[in-house]
């Protein structure tokens, strides 16, 4: 005779219940961020909002900075170009150094290797603020004060340690046999790196590139401290000056510029999200 295996309601649905609970927790945790973005979008396209969220009337007036240079501020497109230049500069330097540095740390057994690796991490742990005074002096002496290239070099040098570690991880995931095969097939070590190994760490390069770009794009402290001329402002300084000035705050304008500032970041994340997922899983598979 057939009999039923007896289960309580909770035993029967344990997985569903767990998933629901997790889901609710995740929603609660992410709610502030989602609401923040929502407010940003709504506010930037409306004349005013009531009770914080309900838009009153659609307008593009908040976006006027796109087609007119506002009084007392530099041209938005000039600031955007400056920001782009910083972002690409940091990204470029970071790709160049970490793709080689990570390889060296992963593959070469040189004297002081483990010390270098630890030191590099310590370097990353330094709070930026603590460096400001010393760096100000360095920039002044080298004549890089109030120049974007100074900010780029500074930012890149602080990003490189972390990027090098990331790249080392990716290189570690590539079997030695591939490198040996390349050597036996008739290339020197540099060529093998270029033709065999480098294409295989593309996901790693993409990841460091994105993080490099974003850290340059969003850099604020260095720009705020070392850049004075309006002509060399970046977007972060632009936003700050609108919020933090003497006048009352025009939230419509702030939200519109904020949104404008965040759009490239979002696009970039969408483009490389598949590599990002691989980063969390770890390693590369052919």
């Amino acid at each position: 005779m057939e009999r039923e295996f007896k289960l309580t309601f909770f035993q029967r649905n344990s997985e569903k219940i767990l998933n629901t609970v997790i889901f609710i927790i995740l929603i609660i945790v992410t709610l502030p961020i989602i609401l923040g973005y929502l407010w940003l979008i709504i506010r930037s396209f409306s004349v005013d909002v009531v009770r914080g969220f309900i838009p009153t009337q659609f307008t593009l007036k908040n976006w006027r900075f796109l087609w007119e240079t506002m009084e007392g501020y530099p041209n938005i497109w000039k600031a955007t170009l400056n920001t782009l230049w910083v972002a690409l500069g940091v990204m470029g330097i970071e790709i160049l150094t970490t793709s080689m540095g990570g390889y060296a740390l992963s593959r070469y057994n040189f004297r002081g290797r483990s010390f270098t690796m630890k030191f590099v991490l310590v370097l990353h742990a330094f709070p930026t603020i603590s460096l400001l005074v010393a760096v100000f002096y360095v920039l002044k002496v080298t004549g890089l004060l109030d120049k974007l290239i100074g900010v780029i070099l500074l930012k890149a040098s602080l990003e490189i340690p972390w990027g090098t570690w990331i790249m080392k991880g990716f290189y570690d995931g590539i079997p030695w046999e591939l490198e040996w095969a390349g050597l036996i097939d008739g290339y020197g070590r540099m060529k093998v790196w270029w033709k065999v190994i480098l294409p295989l760490v593309k996901p790693g390069i993409a990841v460091t590139a994105v993080f490099g770009f974003l850290s340059g794009w969003s850099e604020f402290i260095f720009v705020n401290t070392f850049i004075f001329t309006q002509e060399t402002w970046t977007l972060s300084k632009y936003v700050k000056s609108i919020i933090g000035d003497f006048r009352f705050v025009d939230y419509g304008l702030v939200t519109a510029i904020g949104l404008f500032y965040v759009i490239p970041t979002l696009i970039l994340y969408f483009l490389v999200s598949k590599y990002m997922i691989r980063l969390t899983i770890g390693g590369v598979k052919g």
């Binding site: 079997p175 046999e177 591939l178 040996w180 295989l200």
Partner: peptide, 12 residues
């Protein structure tokens, strides 16, 4: 010429 245990073919 060498043949490896894991073949070491270039995946890309």
């Amino acid at each position: 010429g060498m043949v490896f245990q894991n073949y070491a073919l270039y995946p890309h």
